[in-house]
Write a protein that binds this DNA or RNA. Structure first.
Lengths: 211, 211
DNA sequence: CAAAAACCGTACTCTATAGTACGAAGATAT
DNA sequence: ATATCTTCGTACTATAGAGTACGGTTTTTG
């Protein structure tokens, strides 16, 4: 927790905090659905029910608000994947479950929207690319790499650079349906399609990294 | 050639044609550098030296012009890769050379700019995603798949679904530096980085698809 | 060379939106 | 209770950019 409950939470501070969150909520929805250019501060204020002056008293500009949205949204992206990697079921089963959950997650409508936003605005806002990468792909790769490293040390996978292996596995899983969704060719992956993608990725990965 | 040199190329038609191309050139540069929202029709007209009225006489709206740019730019993307896949050097050498050229290409500044544009505007312009996908990634995969299929039939690679193998190879090559460039973490790949990426991808691919 | 088409420059309309100003009304603290 | 801070509503400024109008000039055609 970083929230300073130090001297006095003070009703005012609390209100301010929750108000701020409400703003970021509404803004996030709009930015994700409409993109940066398609989002207007006036619409956000209207949806909130408040006045524009109030909105500006929380965020001094659209850009700053956008930054806050990206932080919030990448945070929500992060946690949620860690519990799954349990080596007790065997490496293959653990990896397969991880891939399924991972693929479902990155092909969710929100994840696609974030991805589009980050990539599309990487020119205008160089910071957000770094923020997003550090919090989402890098986090995932590190997690997976740790697991893979363990498996390598137990000789359940061929010994090699674990981070590379992790990246390659995510690459194999993502490059099919995910890319098509990013570019708008398809709107969603059916459960069967997810199964199939994961099967293909796992087959290739295991052949390459068999002990 | 689709140009109708049928009855009379007629100076007027010729001028119109080359003028149109000049417009698309200028527009492409702006769209790629500044994005859709960051590009203004007035700026394009100014760069051209012409007047706005003329610009609108060629393209009835910004959206239409954008469509023309995407077509032009994906066309330029396409051809250029095909000559390389020569099985006489041996499958491994041929694939490695292909991967190198492919990776250099998709990490070129222009390719990154196109990719960002397509992904970033996939919501607003659902068509362009389809156009781009059909002309660039799909084309490449098909080309590579044909080569791989040949190799499989000659038992130089393990027999399996060739299209899947092709997709996986491109995934393995692209997922490192390319993704980081897309998100703005790095501005370019050094030749050494390209070598390294290709080495890693090829190693994994060949292990998985050895005959 | 004349008629027709295309082009130029410039000024214009219209709309959208980021951001500001301000007085009244409401909430919070002491 | 009362002084202070916050919010509301609304009206406003300022800017920017898409698309239009039009009279004069150049280019193409016959």
């Amino acid at each position: 927790m970083k929230t300073p409950s130090c001297p006095a939470p003070s009703r005012r501070e609390a209100n301010r905090q929750s108000r701020r969150e409400a703003i970021v909520d509404v803004a996030a929805q709009s930015f994700l659905e409409q993109g940066y250019a398609g989002t207007t501060m006036s619409a956000i204020a209207a949806t909130l029910g408040g006045s524009k002056g109030t909105l500006w008293s929380y965020f001094e500009s659209k850009e700053v608000l956008f930054g806050a949205v990206i932080e919030r949204v990448t945070d929500a992206f992060r946690a949620q994947l860690s519990l799954i990697l349990n080596p007790d079921d065997g490496v293959e089963a653990a990896l397969r479950r991880f891939c399924e959950k991972f693929l479902r997650k990155v092909t969710s409508p929100e994840a696609i929207a974030i991805h589009r936003l980050v990539v599309g605005e990487a020119n205008r806002f160089p910071e957000i690319g770094r923020i997003f990468y550090a919090r989402a792909p890098q986090q995932t790769q590190r997690l997976l790499a740790d697991f893979i490293e363990g498996a390598m040390e137990r000789d359940e996978l061929r010994r090699d650079d674990a981070l590379t292996a992790a990246r390659q596995l995510t690459a194999l899983v993502m490059y099919g349906g995910h890319q098509q969704m990013l570019m708008g060719l398809i709107d969603a992956l059916t459960p069967e399609a997810i199964e199939a993608e994961v099967d293909r990725a796992m087959a290739t990965f295991l052949r390459a990294y068999a002990a």
